[in-house]
Write a protein that binds this DNA or RNA. Sequence first.
RNA 1: GUCCCCAUCGUCUAGUCAGGUCCAGGACACCGGCCUUUCACGCCGGCAACACCGGUUCAAAUCCGGUUGGGGACGCCA
Length: 493
Amino acid sequence: MTEVRVRFPPSPTGYLHIGGARTALLNWLWARKNNGKLILRIEDTDADRSTQESIAGIIDGLTWLGLDWDEGPYFQTEFSKDHQQAAQKLLDSGHAYKCFCTREELEKKREAALAAKKDVRYDGTCRHLTPEQIREKEEMGLPSVIRFKVPQKEGVVAYEDKVLGTIERAYSDIEDFVIVRSNGKPLYLLCNVVDDIRDRITHIIRGQDHMTNTSRQVLLYQALGAPIPVFAHMPLTLDLQKKKISKRSHGEIVSVQFYREKGFLPWALCNFLVLLGWNPGTDQEIFSREELIEAFTLERISKVNSVFNYQKGNAKFFTDPKLIAINEHYLRSMEITELAQLVKKELEAEGLWDEAYEGEKQDWFLATIDLIRDRFHTLKDFTTAGRAYFSDDYEIMAKPLKKNILKHPELKTWLPQLGQRLGELESFTEEEVERVSREMAAELGIKPGILINGMRTVLTGQLAGPSMFAVLVALGRETVVRRLRNIDHLYEA
RNA sequence: GUCCCCAUCGUCUAGUCAGGUCCAGGACACCGGCCUUUCACGCCGGCAACACCGGUUCAAAUCCGGUUGGGGACGCCA
């Protein structure tokens, strides 16, 4: 059996977006499943739009996602000789011809056709030029492009698509497309095929937006005498208005970088992305890498475009709710030591990291992040909502301040008192702090919740959180007492 | 205007190829209840879809035709 070889060929004209990441992911899965190879090929033939930052961004993005490749990155521009040779071969074999029509002429014809609501295809003006006419034009110094000579015959060009079945297109519906620019530089359609042949690509997994390219590229494979790879066209990802998601119209929300900055787990993003247009045929939605590689098949890729459910301006669901849910799932269930490494980076970035968290305070650190992760959504929450566990410099949220502190002015004296009692405790355990708290509430003739939620606000700044007695123990006696004693400033504003 | 692809809950989707076990299953979201010191934690429950019309058949989400709707492509971009 021949080796499975797939490729991810981004054009470096912007950051890596989730559509590209999804394409990379499916190719990666297919390579890994078959013990094959994934080739990263940067398609930088559009010199005007390609940038170094973009190349770095794509590589960064893939690396962060954990999508490793086996060959490359190759750069398409390094193989321009191959492309030119292929073009010459097509010219020599009569599969292509020189076309001297100018852009202006073509543009005029296209507009006229569009205005007349007619076909906008190339009319074949230069297809039947005699060798003498060609020589004449060349001697006059007229620039020319090279067009592929689409067979003028009955019937269809067909290919088998792993997800869509047989795709057919009549020869007569395909125009003589340009394969080399007038400046001598070959175009995508040709380069892509030449590179795939050279890289011995066996499966081409790409978006349905390439379907018309595929029909034309099949012609190229045939003319070049190369075997045709297996195609799998995946459905596109659209926005709620059913428009293709793009960097241009959707901005950062579709960039992989955004999710990294927002504290998402890379595998959670992959898990979400793979479910956009693929499913295993079972109810399973959460997969480890190994499970996903095992379960993945080309045939189960959906034919239907999916919607990235993102509503602008929604603070709670700042991206697709399902993505957030999957991220939460991993945040809550992943190995705590693995999570610790990620939280460490977050704390370091905020200047809150303490080396002792990997030394004498390690048990405390692991227990604490395990305690608070249940209500968190992203890694960022550890330094925002969870900041009070690692620093005295945390914000008291307005809502709990009003509801749990200002509403009960007596807390100004009660809380320091409670702090005093907690400080005098012989053993600072959940049972003991609970006993003391409830006893004091009973003495005062108030509901325990007033004291408890007052403490929550003062000690964590948050409206919600884990069991308060567990929180007290996590914070430790010294911190609890210090914070409870110093609350006058809360009443000042 | 031409060509190609597609059509199940709000969203992601199972079921379609091999018609009956589907008055359509799961997940997310939403709503309600429980737990409780709080909560965007957890548990339990609920709402919610086969685009439309015709045909084939004892029987259609499933097969066929049409309609409508959506998407993609129609560059000397990739």
